[in-house]
Design a protein around this nucleic acid. Structure first.
Lengths: 203, 203
DNA sequence: CCTACCGATCGGTAGG
DNA sequence: CCTACCGATCGGTAGG
């Protein structure tokens, strides 16, 4: 993470992530970050150009990780169900491995400058398109119901993203177990399937 | 909404909602709100005690509406599936009827003072408990799979809440149609059920 | 990485 | 609802 950076800059970014997550980007001051890094506010500017550079790095580093993850999934010869399971697993893996950066990535990208925000939205849309492609494949193969692809992909993603709100490493559920539960939920829903049945079954 | 308030105060609250939604609470200044209300910043203080009173009113008014909605659902003799459908319908109804306040309610409650935040979290938990009760009832009745109740309730809610991100009144989907699609998704998931079958069906 | 400091903006008050 | 203004804090720069 944060490749081609000095260790000190990586450290500052890591501290900034935690503060942005806790207080929100807009409510976090450069002085907060300096205090966490145990330097005077002005000293930060020998490492960074400004506050927004920190937000920018967090958002685009995470976007890159998510895009690589969905790229992997779409390069593999799986059916739609297997692809969905892998996409969910990768997504949960990233959220739990980078909990601070993930919250900032999901919530605070709005504070990017207009240009960078546009760029960010394009990357995010490309990621969502990865999920849409999986849903579309499932519908085409007859494995999934004939849902609205955009609607379904966004519903899936939003049901995954709330995990950042409660996940703590000490928790009993491992990332892969969370992913399995969510995959099952997305695929089969809450309702119990019909029990073993004799004779004509109409759905 | 905003009962027992002067019309002018209601107007200010309505303007504040839109600004908070657009820029976020922390990044919205009292001067922004004053400009929207076409008065000098100091004039706002004859209507409100401070900026936080606006956030407080928005968050607790919405909490009240959501709690009333889930209360209705739990007072009715429905089975779990019907209750879930009604809870989803009511939830989407509120989100789409109050889109600005809903975003602030879902996102900016973190900026309440510590005391009020604690109070707010209690109300929100009571609302979530309404959903947990429905899931629990479904599991007890044998209508739902034996899921983790807390996990399922939060997954359902997060899949509902993202609707505020894309809903616009001009859109082709009516609130009740959105609710129906989401209810179906939550109950049966993406995967197609087995087709009409003769003979023994094993799940 | 520091001291010293900038102009701008913040939420809010006094007094009418 | 206004004018006038407060002290605090903001992101950031100059110069070493």
């Amino acid at each position: 993470m944060f490749v081609s950076m000095t260790d000190r800059k990586k450290e500052i970014l890591s501290l900034a992530q935690a503060l942005f997550r806790e207080k929100g980007y807009a409510a976090t001051s450069v002085r907060d970050i300096a205090a966490a890094a145990q330097v005077e506010p002005a000293s930060l500017y020998s490492h960074i150009k400004g506050k927004e550079e920190l937000l920018d790095a967090i958002c685009f580093e995470m976007a890159d990780k998510f895009l690589k993850a969905i790229g992997e999934v779409n390069d593999i010869y799986f059916d739609a169900v297997q692809k969905l399971a892998m996409a969910v697993k990768n997504h949960i893996q990233l959220l739990t491995e980078h909990p601070d950066a993930s919250v900032v990535f999901l919530r605070d990208w709005r504070y990017l400058s207009d240009d960078r925000k546009d760029e960010f939205i394009k990357l995010r849309d490309r990621y969502e398109e990865g999920f849409r492609a999986i849903v579309r494949k499932g519908v085409d193969e007859g494995a999934f119901n004939e849902v609205d692809v955009r609607f379904a992909a966004l519903t899936i993603l939003s049901s995954l993203n709330w995990v950042v709100e409660w996940y703590h490493e000490e928790g009993k559920l491992q990332p892969n177990e969370i992913a399995d539960q969510l995959t099952k939920f997305v695929l089969t829903g809450l309702q119990k399937e019909l029990p073993v049945t004799y004779g004509l079954v109409t759905n």
